[in-house]
Amino acid sequence: MPEQRKQVGNTIDASGKNATTVERLESLTFLRFIAALVVVIFHYGSDTFFYTNLPTILNCGPIMVTFFFVLSGFVLAISNTKKTISASQFYVNRVARILPIYLIALLAFMVMTRSSFNGTFLLSATLIQSWFPTKATTLNYPGWSVSVEMFFYAICPLLLFLSSAKKKSSLGLWLACAVLLWIASQVILSYYSRTSHHQGAGTLSHALINYFPPSHLCSFVLGFTAGLFFKAGVWRQVIGEKTALLLSLLLFAIIGKVIDYGPNIDAAIGEHLAYASSFTAILFTPAIYLCAIANNLLKKIACMPALVILGESSYSLYILQAPAHLAFQRTPSQYIFESSTVNFSIFVVMLVLLSIASYFLIEKTVSKIIKTAYTKRIMRAPTEAEVAV
């Protein structure tokens, strides 16, 4: 989901002391666009040439949501390096970027579907719908993952506090806890999916496995842990950028094959794995880490500035896809082509243009206004207190 894309490193300032520098992780920024586009293809392009000819990693929407969760943890770990940032400032930053376009998309969806402004709307508007699994995808269904992200944001200040010691000796403990959490989550979810309580897609049990926030916590924690390793410089001086890029691409390809051969894997081990609920997080984590190492190499791509803009607009693309598609479906028949691939291509182009406009006109602008207002309020607070004294 939407975050600042930053890479933290160390340089020596004029006084000879370590100084923190920040570099944009543009490679990860563009990956967010690819992941969002995969979700769009999964939702609306199943009868197109793209869906049938792309490898699984590029047409399987559910696993890309896992990618978002891992990436979110990774980025938050490496971007929040200021010890003075308060929990309130952290929450304001997150809400300022997410909420405005989220609410616009929700209202647009409701208008398009003529939905009632009832309790279900309140759950979605307050971003808690995923805690009520049967309501998670009722309104503007991609929003369920944003609801899960809000859970991650709620606990992130605690994780940042626990990691503030920045001792390399504690990295092993972080990794062990993250992996154990992933194993425990997958054992519980996979077992639950085999019991008589699991009634399949569209039921409460299915929603608990796929949409309930704690079911995806392991993805965020794995990503956060990888971010701590990245800040500490682990492997960054050992693995070359070209090698890191090749290994990252290999891991992405392996993830696709894991999904392809899921039924065979289940048959071989005699168990059913919860592939759609953070199972692939254990592979996405090193793939993202290696892609971050290759950042400087990828930044040399001539069209990178344009790709970064696409990456910046990926949240709008993701959250606006449902209402935008509803609007597109109302296109007069004389403007619709016989080819579903052509129609879908036109929709994607329109959605991308809409998302770019949304990023610059709404996301970026409104976020800046909210953050500025909050900063002014905080700066005024001491003066008012002094007057009271």
Results as ranks from 00 to 15, higher is better:
residue 2 P to T: 06
residue 2 P to Y: 05
residue 7 Q to E: 12
residue 8 V to M: 12
residue 8 V to G: 11
residue 12 I to H: 00
residue 16 G to V: 09
residue 20 T to I: 13
residue 33 F to P: 06
residue 42 F to K: 02
residue 48 T to F: 11
residue 52 T to S: 14
residue 57 I to E: 13
residue 60 C to M: 10
residue 65 V to E: 01
residue 71 L to G: 02
residue 72 S to R: 04
residue 79 S to E: 03
residue 83 K to D: 15
residue 83 K to P: 12
residue 87 A to R: 15
residue 89 Q to R: 10
residue 100 P to F: 04
residue 101 I to R: 01
residue 104 I to P: 09
residue 105 A to C: 02
residue 105 A to I: 08
residue 108 A to V: 08
residue 110 M to E: 06
residue 110 M to I: 03
residue 111 V to Y: 15
residue 121 F to I: 05
residue 121 F to R: 01
residue 121 F to W: 05
residue 122 L to T: 02
residue 127 L to C: 12
residue 128 I to N: 03
residue 129 Q to C: 04
residue 135 K to W: 04
residue 139 L to V: 11
residue 141 Y to W: 13
residue 144 W to N: 04
residue 149 E to C: 08
residue 149 E to Q: 09
residue 152 F to A: 02
residue 156 C to P: 05
residue 162 L to R: 02
residue 162 L to K: 08
residue 163 S to C: 04
residue 164 S to G: 05
residue 164 S to I: 07
residue 164 S to F: 04
residue 168 K to A: 06
residue 174 W to A: 14
residue 177 C to D: 01
residue 177 C to Q: 08
residue 180 L to F: 10
residue 182 W to T: 13
residue 183 I to P: 09
residue 186 Q to V: 07
residue 187 V to I: 14
residue 188 I to A: 13
residue 190 S to I: 04
residue 194 R to L: 06
residue 197 H to F: 15
residue 201 A to P: 00
residue 206 H to V: 01
residue 211 Y to W: 11
residue 212 F to D: 04
residue 217 L to C: 08
residue 218 C to N: 12
residue 220 F to Q: 07
residue 222 L to D: 04
residue 224 F to H: 02
residue 225 T to N: 02
residue 227 G to C: 01
residue 230 F to G: 07
residue 235 W to D: 03
residue 241 E to W: 00
residue 249 L to W: 07
residue 251 L to Q: 12
residue 254 I to C: 14
residue 254 I to K: 10
residue 257 K to N: 12
residue 261 Y to K: 09
residue 262 G to S: 14
residue 266 D to N: 14
residue 273 L to R: 10
residue 275 Y to E: 13
residue 276 A to L: 10
residue 277 S to P: 04
residue 280 T to I: 15
residue 283 L to H: 10
residue 285 T to N: 09
residue 286 P to K: 00
residue 289 Y to T: 08
residue 294 A to V: 07
residue 295 N to K: 05
residue 307 L to N: 11
residue 308 V to K: 09
residue 311 G to T: 00
residue 313 S to T: 09
residue 313 S to G: 03
residue 314 S to E: 07
residue 317 L to M: 15
residue 318 Y to S: 04
residue 332 P to D: 12
residue 334 Q to Y: 15
residue 335 Y to M: 11
residue 336 I to C: 10
residue 347 F to C: 10
residue 348 V to T: 10
residue 352 V to T: 15
residue 354 L to S: 14
residue 358 S to H: 12
residue 362 I to G: 06
residue 369 I to T: 10
residue 371 K to S: 00
residue 372 T to H: 10
residue 376 K to F: 01
residue 376 K to H: 03
residue 381 A to D: 03
residue 384 E to G: 00
residue 386 E to Q: 05
